[in-house]
């Protein structure tokens, strides 16, 4: 961590970057931190408690501007950054990655390829929490699953913390805000909530990198991340995705190929 701080301070001091997006100590646990001077770099922390997906900030123009910036990126953030590259949302020359592996060794990554090579060393696996809940859900009948999710979604009040915390929800106008036609009822109600979450999941198919930020952000504790994670897991073998690596072949729901197995499109 000390090495990372020193490197960040040096990058800011010599003007290589004008901003380091990282973590600082928060009131309860680490939180995102925008480090703009080398003096502030001593506040940077980088450890296993840093769970926020910082990739959510790298597409915000009002924050990053046009100058080069660095991100102290945990593995989940890197996965999202790769997907953002694939979706043409980032410029390689503007962003520098600082990261450290579990052994504490510092890595500096400057391109899509370098990040890809680094990320390939880490397998994306279910954690204990995901395993526990998904195992329970996988054992349910279809009706039980519907009831489980309906009960969960009924808690939703549409604060859109899930959307805001997701690095891949970068649209300036979300489908729930489009009103000609009104695809989704924008008020909170059990079925209207279901409409929203199903739509969100559909938009994430083949894009979600299972970082868990949406579930983590939900103030009413809906394990919303498990929907897209499960979808990712189910789709991977069908469409040749490798969970946690970017979908270079495009997104399952918005790509059309002549060798698609389904007949309806031809």
């Amino acid at each position: 961590m000390e090495k990372l701080r020193e490197r960040a301070a040096a990058l800011l001091a010599d003007g290589t970057v004008s901003l380091v997006i990282g973590f600082e100590e928060g009131t309860k646990r680490p939180r995102p931190f925008f480090c703009r001077t080398s003096d502030q770099a001593s506040k940077l922390i980088f450890d296993s408690r840093c769970f926020h997906n910082l990739a959510v900030y790298v597409t915000k123009k009002e924050l990053v501007g046009k100058e080069p910036f660095a991100v102290t990126a945990p593995i989940a953030t890197l996965r999202s950054i790769l997907q953002l590259y694939v979706e043409n949302q980032l410029k390689e020359e503007q962003m520098l990655i600082l990261t450290a592996d579990p052994a504490g060794e510092l890595f500096e990554l400057r391109s899509f390829d370098e990040i890809s090579a680094y990320v390939a060393n880490f397998e994306l696996k279910r954690g204990e929490r995901e395993e526990e809940i998904l195992h329970k859900i996988e054992g349910m009948t279809r009706e039980e699953r519907w009831q489980f999710w309906l009960n969960e979604m009924s808690q939703c009040f549409k604060c859109y913390a899930c959307r805001s915390a997701c690095p891949l929800c970068y649209c300036t106008k979300c489908v729930v805000e489009v009103n000609r036609p009104q695809w989704i009822h924008p008020w909170p109600a059990p079925l209207a909530n279901m409409e929203w979450h199903i739509n969100r999941a559909m938009h994430m198919v083949g894009r979600c990198t299972a970082c868990g930020a949406c579930g983590e952000a939900c103030p009413v504790g809906i394990p919303i991340d498990l929907i897209t994670r499960k979808m990712m897991e189910d789709l991977a073998p069908e469409f040749g995705y490798i969970p946690g690596l970017p979908a270079r072949q495009g997104n399952a729901l918005s790509s059309w190929r002549l060798d698609d197995r389904e007949q309806f499109i031809r």
Binding site: R31, P32, F33, F34, V56, Y57, L63, F157, K158, C159, Y160, A161, R163, S164, A165, Q182, H185, P186, W187, A217, P219
Partner: peptide, 23 residues
């Protein structure tokens, strides 16, 4: 800077009363 622009704070707040009117 770190604010994500969601409505969590407003929706859990006992006094936030901003509303929308929908059809």
């Amino acid at each position: 800077e770190r604010c994500l622009g969601c409505g969590a704070c407003a929706f859990v707040c006992p006094t936030c009363a901003c509303f929308d009117i929908q059809e």
